[in-house]
């Protein structure tokens, strides 16, 4: 399996705050879903921004094989343009890349159908529920068929039922093109459910504190949340997290 993106001894330091991340190593292979878990301020989102190319490391190296436009990010908030309807929001990455409006809107419509929002194509963000807005955000990320998909706590503002539905939807959509995915969260169960590999980070500065491989098929089979594999994985991640928190104190 070839590496899609990697951080090699990457460090990020901010003036006045010192080193917030690193040295940090992470390699993402094609079609892999990795979850980054850790306490607030452990540099999860910083690592994500490095991978996206939205921030440069102070030291170390970032490699990325996808070209511009083949990396997509979903932020904690849906981050939609409030003045534009769902279709226009989803078409944005395509239009910014120079695609003709009609074609971009057709593809956006398909992407919205794929996330189950064919009836909300003309709706503005204010007319959507939190879960629907997040789906629009997801459709916008997937419309370019990215090879690297970065999800920065996308479920943070959603209720439990919406989270679970969206988690299964992400797996289903991932299965169509199999991009490499980094999923940032501070929820242990969510990490164990979403990812094949859970990387736990400790803070000050952000480093890897442990790693759990979850040997179960993706998308998850029905009943996975009550299975032994899931329970064991969640326990392992919890243990790593406790260790990571211990480092903080």
């Amino acid at each position: 399996m070839s590496v899609v993106a990697s951080l090699i001894a990457a460090e990020v330091a901010y003036p006045g705050r010192g080193t917030v991340l690193g040295p940090f190593d992470l390699a993402l292979t094609e079609g892999e879903i990795v979850a980054l878990v850790g306490p607030s301020g452990c540099g999860k989102s910083t690592a994500l921004r490095l991978l996206a190319g939205l921030e440069q490391p102070t030291a170390g190296t970032v490699t990325r094989t996808p070209e511009r436009g083949q990396t997509a990010v979903v932020f904690q908030a849906p981050t939609l343009m409030p003045w534009a309807d769902a279709r226009t929001n989803v078409a944005l990455p395509l239009e910014l890349a120079g695609m003709a409006k009609a074609k971009a809107h057709d593809q956006a419509q398909e992407a919205l159908k794929a996330v189950g929002l064919e009836n909300a194509i003309g709706s503005k963000p204010a007319q959507l529920s939190g879960g629907m807005a997040m789906r629009v955000s997801l459709a916008r990320a997937l419309v370019t068929r990215p090879r690297l998909l970065l999800l920065d706590e996308p479920f943070a503002a959603l209720d439990e039922i919406t989270r679970r539905n969206l988690a299964d939807d992400i797996h289903r959509l991932w299965d169509q093109t199999r991009p490499a995915v980094v999923f940032v969260t501070h929820n242990v169960e969510e990490a164990a459910y979403m990812a094949q590999r859970v990387v736990v980070m400790s803070a000050n500065p952000g480093k890897i504190a442990g790693q759990t491989i979850i040997d179960a098929p993706l998308p998850r089979p029905p009943g996975f949340r009550t299975s032994e594999v899931f329970r064991n994985a969640a326990e392992d991640v919890s243990r790593d997290l406790a260790k990571a928190m211990g480092h903080v104190q």
């Binding site: 190319g53 939205l54 511009r68 436009g69 932020f75 981050t79 343009m81 910014l96 890349a97």
Partner: peptide, 22 residues
Amino acid sequence: DPDLERLFDLYGATPWQRLLRL
């Protein structure tokens, strides 16, 4: 919205696109 600005960065928006669309 700073996240929208980041999104425009990510997709390599030109200054003109950023002005008109954001």
